[in-house]
Amino acid sequence: MTGERYSAAALERWNVVNPVLPDDGFDAAAGVRRPARRRSDPRPRRAMKQVLAHFERGGVPEANRHITQIAAELYRTEDLRSAVRSFLTDGPGKATFTGR
């Protein structure tokens, strides 16, 4: 949301993206990897999917028309306040979530 770029490795470590596996040896690589950890509240993922769905229908202007309403629901959560505090004091990827 800030426009900053992060490496694929960082996004994978923060569970934003799934691991990318090679075509050659995919089955073996997939078999040895553990499933992605679900440490976070599902609401931010759901919000991101909503924004992307609007983007697919009408690009950035369509996504922008809906993003404030979608994001407002996240700002009401205890998890967001806790995550911001954690990010500011401990850095990214260290927050814990309760689903509240």
Rank of each mutant, 00 (worst) to 15 (best):
A9L: 11
R13E: 12
N15C: 13
S86A: 15
R5P: 00
P35K: 11
F97D: 00
T2A: 10
D90E: 15
S40H: 12
L74K: 03
M1D: 08
R57Q: 13
K49N: 11
G91I: 04
Y6P: 03
V16I: 15
S40W: 04
P61R: 04
V17S: 02
R37H: 00
G99C: 10
R81I: 08
R81H: 13
L80N: 04
I70M: 06
D23G: 08
T89L: 14
S86V: 06
A8G: 14
P92N: 03
H54R: 08
V20G: 02
R57C: 01
L21K: 08
V20D: 06
Y6V: 07
E73T: 14
R5I: 05
S86E: 08
P22Y: 03
K94G: 07
N64L: 12
A72G: 10
Y75I: 12
D79P: 10
G3S: 10
V84G: 00
A63S: 02
L88M: 14
D41E: 02
D27S: 13
G59W: 03
E12F: 05
T96K: 12
V17L: 14
F55S: 00
P35C: 00
S86H: 04
G58K: 05
T77A: 05
Y75H: 09
D41I: 06
V51Q: 04
A8V: 12
D27E: 12
E78R: 15
A10D: 15
P61M: 00
H54G: 00
G3F: 07
H66N: 09
P92M: 10
A10N: 02
L88G: 08
D90R: 14
A83N: 09
G59R: 01
T98G: 12
A72F: 05
F87T: 13
H54F: 11
A53R: 03
F55H: 11
A95I: 05
L88S: 07
T96Q: 12
R45G: 15
V20T: 14
P61N: 04
E4M: 13
D79S: 05
L80G: 04
G59E: 01
R34I: 01
R38A: 14
R57E: 09
G91L: 05
D23I: 03
G99L: 07
Y6T: 01
V84D: 00
R45S: 13
P42K: 05
R37P: 01
R76M: 11
R43N: 07
F87N: 08
R45A: 12
P44R: 08
A10F: 09
P92I: 06
L21A: 09
M48N: 04
N18E: 14
P22V: 01
N64D: 10
V84M: 13
N15T: 12
L21S: 10
P22M: 06
G91T: 07
R57F: 00
S7G: 12
P19D: 10
F26G: 00
A83G: 09
A10E: 13
T68L: 10
T98M: 01
N15G: 04
A63Y: 03
F87L: 15
I70S: 02
V51D: 02
S40C: 07
G93N: 06
R43L: 14
N18Q: 14
G93E: 06
H54S: 11
R37F: 01
